[in-house]
Simulated scan of single mutants.
Amino acid sequence: MSRLPTVLITGASSGIGAAYAERFARRGHDLVIVARDTGRLEALATRLRSEAGVAIDVVSADLAISDDIARVEKRLREDSSIGVLVNNAGISVAGSFDKQSSADHDRLVAVNATAVMRLAHAVSGRFAEAGDGAIVNIGSVVGLVPEFGQTIYGATKAFVLFLSQGLAFELGPKGVYVQAVLPAATATEIWSRAGADPAALPPMMEVGALVDAALSGFDRREPVTIPPLHDESKWTAFQATRMAMLPGFAQSIPAARYKVDA
């Protein structure tokens, strides 16, 4: 019987990442769990080793720091036992675009976009060569809704969706599965860490329910999993409309509506 692949999960100290760690451990996968909070990681690792009998390595890293990303990249490139990457780490910042600081924006992009890209790239070559492996990128429905007003956060999550779809197109034929997961509001600590007003928060999905739905999509090899979207036909129609536009992008002259009368 072949051994299950090890799963590396970022942002695993709490919330969605911790739930992924629990679910994969229960399935019998060894884990590499990554986050800034070493104490929480060690406590989670101790509990899951006892409950699930799996091996768990703890990696303390801040994915806003390039050198820390590089350490996780090295592990992904060199540890051939790792067959699943869950790019879950993410942050948010409260307030409007004009009130947020440039430092806030830099950190958002570093954690939510740059780290996701770099870690996926670090493992993609090895997965493609093996003809196997999975990359799970946690995005957000916010990346589809500029009307929510979370401009930089939403832009990073739109990047995650596009990156995932592009990687699926490039790596899928080589045997690598890529999944984008798009949660809506989920009951995690990201809200309090962002300084959000609790009274202004919307109803939220429970973390375990979100991850169980995401793993159902994973098992079915969905390219994009949107747990809060009950009417799947809306996403199918959205994708069909997008594809229907593609021939129009190849036109060599401007559309008639842009013609300027002499």
Rank of each mutant, 00 (worst) to 15 (best):
residue 123 V to Y: 06
residue 208 G to A: 04
residue 222 E to T: 11
residue 217 G to R: 05
residue 180 A to C: 15
residue 256 A to H: 10
residue 142 V to P: 03
residue 177 Y to N: 07
residue 210 L to N: 03
residue 191 W to Q: 02
residue 128 A to I: 05
residue 210 L to V: 08
residue 178 V to F: 05
residue 164 S to Q: 06
residue 237 A to L: 12
residue 202 P to V: 04
residue 211 V to C: 10
residue 229 L to K: 09
residue 243 M to S: 14
residue 257 R to M: 02
residue 230 H to K: 14
residue 157 K to N: 11
residue 153 Y to T: 04
residue 197 D to G: 01
residue 151 T to A: 07
residue 170 E to V: 09
residue 204 M to A: 10
residue 128 A to E: 05
residue 186 T to P: 04
residue 115 A to E: 11
residue 188 T to I: 07
residue 165 Q to F: 07
residue 114 T to M: 15
residue 242 R to L: 14
residue 120 A to K: 01
residue 177 Y to W: 05
residue 185 A to F: 13
residue 124 S to P: 01
residue 254 P to H: 15
residue 168 A to E: 05
residue 167 L to Y: 08
residue 237 A to Q: 08
residue 229 L to E: 08
residue 116 V to L: 15
residue 131 G to Y: 05
residue 158 A to F: 11
residue 155 A to T: 10
residue 130 A to Q: 10
residue 259 K to C: 06
residue 184 A to Q: 03
residue 120 A to N: 09
residue 205 M to I: 05
residue 120 A to Q: 06
residue 157 K to Y: 12
residue 147 E to Y: 02
residue 166 G to A: 04
residue 233 S to N: 10
residue 185 A to D: 08
residue 238 F to K: 01
residue 199 A to Y: 08
residue 175 G to L: 05
residue 197 D to K: 00
residue 200 A to I: 01
residue 171 L to Y: 06
residue 114 T to N: 15
residue 130 A to I: 04
residue 113 A to L: 13
residue 182 L to T: 04
residue 245 M to E: 14
residue 168 A to Q: 13
residue 126 R to M: 02
residue 258 Y to S: 09
residue 146 P to M: 00
residue 196 A to Q: 02
residue 242 R to T: 14
residue 182 L to W: 00
residue 116 V to M: 13
residue 160 V to Q: 13
residue 213 A to W: 00
residue 136 V to C: 07
residue 157 K to E: 12
residue 118 R to L: 15
residue 244 A to F: 05
residue 178 V to H: 03
residue 257 R to W: 02
residue 215 L to N: 00
residue 235 W to Q: 11
residue 148 F to W: 05
residue 180 A to G: 11
residue 196 A to P: 00
residue 148 F to V: 06
residue 121 H to V: 03
residue 172 G to Y: 12
residue 113 A to D: 08
residue 167 L to N: 05
residue 248 G to T: 07
residue 147 E to Q: 12
residue 247 P to G: 06
residue 114 T to H: 13
residue 180 A to W: 10
residue 203 P to K: 13
residue 191 W to H: 10
residue 246 L to G: 08
residue 154 G to K: 04
residue 175 G to R: 09
residue 236 T to P: 00
residue 135 I to M: 09
residue 170 E to Q: 15
residue 219 D to G: 14
residue 163 L to K: 04
residue 250 A to T: 12
residue 126 R to D: 07
residue 257 R to S: 07
residue 250 A to W: 07
residue 164 S to H: 03
residue 177 Y to I: 09
residue 153 Y to W: 06
residue 203 P to Q: 14
residue 202 P to S: 04
residue 202 P to A: 03
residue 255 A to K: 12
residue 150 Q to A: 06
residue 251 Q to W: 08
residue 166 G to Y: 01
residue 242 R to E: 13
residue 172 G to S: 07
residue 116 V to F: 13
residue 200 A to F: 00
residue 172 G to E: 12
residue 229 L to P: 08
residue 242 R to S: 14
